[in-house]
Simulated scan of single mutants.
Amino acid sequence: MARAGITPERLTRAAAELADEEGFDNLTVSAVARRLGVRDPSLYAHIRNARELKERVALLALEELADAAAAAVAGRAGRDALVAFADAYRGYALGHPGRYAAARFELDIRTVAGSAAPRHSELTRAVLRGYGLPEPDQTDAVRFLHGTFHGYVTLEAAGGFRHTPRSADDSWAWLLDTLDFALRNRPRP
């Protein structure tokens, strides 16, 4: 019997908040139970194990990130869409570090298919339509953008840019200008 007041949604939200505060790697069923003021067995009415708890946080994070990116790029094209998309990505990663880490959690293929994960690629491709890239360049560009964004925000979140005279925001703007230039000037076969 499920404990009154604990729902799968409340459990997932509490786990996501805890991941942001303590780190996704530190997320455990016991820690979430303590946060909710219940004993561990109370949560097993809603989840099978710790892996399922992490999967739920990952799915929530993917959904939230896709929603933020979609709202940011709506009605935009070209460089404006690229900047809005990138800023949404960076803002989410820095504002929700545990959830952002969860979005990188390995999910099985059936779970991915029913999640917001495919939306990330579709949104990136929508941004790239403004650059007129044919395949396979478009697939390469999706990987290029995600790799660049992930690398930058990972270094930034770890404090990698604190000890330089140039602000991380200024470098981010430079990075986006450079990406835009690269995408607009990609040699065509």
Rank of each mutant, 00 (worst) to 15 (best):
I6C: 14
T7P: 12
R10K: 11
L11N: 01
T12A: 05
A14V: 11
A14H: 07
A15S: 11
A16G: 07
L18R: 03
L18H: 02
A19H: 05
D20W: 01
E21N: 11
E21C: 10
E21T: 14
E22K: 12
N26V: 05
L27N: 13
T28C: 03
V29N: 09
S30I: 04
A31G: 08
V32K: 02
V32A: 00
L36S: 09
G37W: 12
P41E: 04
L43I: 10
Y44K: 05
H46Q: 10
I47P: 07
E52S: 15
L53S: 09
K54Y: 01
K54P: 02
E55G: 08
R56I: 02
V57M: 06
A61E: 06
L65P: 05
A66D: 06
A66C: 06
A68N: 13
A68P: 06
G75E: 04
R79N: 03
D80F: 00
A81S: 04
L82V: 00
L82I: 01
F85V: 01
G91Q: 05
A93H: 00
L94H: 14
H96I: 03
G98S: 07
G98R: 00
A101K: 04
A102F: 08
A103S: 15
F105Q: 01
I109H: 13
G114I: 10
R119H: 06
R119I: 05
S121T: 14
L123Y: 07
T124G: 05
R125S: 11
V127A: 01
R129L: 09
Y131D: 02
Y131K: 04
L133E: 08
D140R: 13
D140W: 15
R143A: 13
G147E: 14
F149V: 05
Y152V: 03
T154G: 05
T154Q: 03
L155K: 09
A157T: 11
G159C: 10
H163C: 06
H163E: 12
P165Q: 13
D170E: 15
D170T: 14
S171H: 00
A173V: 01
W174Q: 09
D177N: 14
L183T: 00
L183S: 02
P189E: 11
P189G: 10
